[in-house]
Structure formats: structure tokens, C-alpha cells
Simulated scan of single mutants.
Amino acid sequence: MKGINDSKKELDKEIEIIRELLHKKIEENIDPKEILSVSEELDKLIVNYLVE
């Protein structure tokens, strides 16, 4: 079980890092409404990935 929990924690960290980088890149080029939309879609994809 410990290996599974460690893997999940690592995945959580990676997802958060990717989200932060994505937000930074998007904020440089897109308006705030589009940033929110992309963020919401990313959240949905993350949830779907973790559920499977």
C-alpha cells in the first residue's frame, strides 16, 4: 500500500506543477476568462484520469 500512496502523492505533485506552468504560459497570452475555461477543462481531465 505504501508504494501506491507514494505514487499517488508523486502524481499529485506532478499535476500541480504542470497546472502552475500551464497557468503561467496562458496568462501571458490569453484573457482571464479563457484561462478559467482551460483550467476547468484541465481539472475535469485530471479527475477522469484519477477515477480510471
Rank of each mutant, 00 (worst) to 15 (best):
residue 29 N to E: 12
residue 45 L to H: 05
residue 6 D to A: 08
residue 14 E to V: 05
residue 39 S to V: 00
residue 11 L to A: 00
residue 44 K to L: 13
residue 19 R to T: 02
residue 10 E to M: 03
residue 15 I to G: 00
residue 33 K to W: 05
residue 51 V to L: 14
residue 44 K to H: 12
residue 19 R to L: 01
residue 26 I to D: 04
residue 40 E to I: 15
residue 4 I to H: 08
residue 43 D to G: 09
residue 17 I to K: 15
residue 17 I to E: 15
residue 17 I to A: 15
residue 31 D to H: 14
residue 7 S to W: 06
residue 25 K to T: 02
residue 5 N to Q: 14
residue 2 K to I: 10
residue 16 E to L: 08
residue 52 E to P: 05
residue 10 E to I: 08
residue 28 E to C: 08
residue 34 E to C: 06
residue 35 I to L: 04
residue 50 L to R: 13
residue 48 N to D: 13
residue 42 L to A: 12
residue 34 E to P: 01
residue 15 I to A: 01
residue 23 H to Y: 10
residue 37 S to H: 05
residue 15 I to H: 04
residue 34 E to Q: 07
residue 31 D to I: 12
residue 21 L to D: 14
residue 8 K to I: 03
residue 5 N to Y: 09
residue 22 L to R: 03
residue 21 L to V: 07
residue 31 D to A: 15
residue 11 L to T: 02
residue 7 S to D: 12
residue 7 S to R: 13
residue 42 L to D: 09
residue 16 E to Q: 04
residue 51 V to Q: 13
residue 40 E to D: 10
residue 48 N to G: 15
residue 20 E to Y: 08
residue 2 K to V: 12
residue 44 K to F: 14
residue 16 E to Y: 00
residue 15 I to K: 00
residue 52 E to T: 06
residue 44 K to A: 15
residue 23 H to L: 05
residue 40 E to S: 15
residue 24 K to Q: 09
residue 44 K to V: 08
residue 52 E to G: 13
residue 46 I to W: 00
residue 15 I to R: 02
residue 22 L to K: 01
residue 40 E to W: 11
residue 4 I to A: 05
residue 48 N to H: 05
residue 27 E to L: 08
residue 37 S to D: 04
residue 9 K to D: 00
residue 4 I to S: 06
residue 48 N to I: 13
residue 13 K to D: 02
residue 30 I to L: 12
residue 37 S to F: 06
residue 14 E to G: 02
residue 12 D to G: 02
residue 30 I to Q: 10
residue 20 E to R: 10
residue 27 E to S: 10
residue 7 S to F: 14
residue 8 K to N: 02
residue 2 K to Y: 07
residue 33 K to N: 10
residue 23 H to F: 09
residue 50 L to C: 06
residue 22 L to C: 04
residue 3 G to P: 12
residue 51 V to M: 13
residue 44 K to R: 13
residue 38 V to D: 03
residue 40 E to P: 03
residue 19 R to Q: 07
residue 50 L to N: 11
residue 27 E to P: 03
residue 4 I to L: 08
residue 32 P to W: 01
residue 42 L to W: 06
residue 10 E to D: 04
residue 46 I to M: 11
residue 23 H to E: 13
residue 6 D to M: 13
residue 10 E to S: 09
residue 3 G to Y: 13
residue 32 P to C: 00
residue 42 L to S: 07
residue 45 L to F: 07
residue 37 S to L: 06
residue 27 E to Y: 08
residue 1 M to V: 09
residue 8 K to M: 00
residue 47 V to Q: 14
residue 33 K to F: 14
residue 23 H to M: 06
residue 43 D to M: 02
residue 19 R to H: 03
residue 28 E to N: 11
residue 17 I to S: 09
residue 51 V to N: 12
residue 49 Y to D: 02
residue 8 K to P: 00
residue 34 E to K: 11
residue 12 D to L: 01
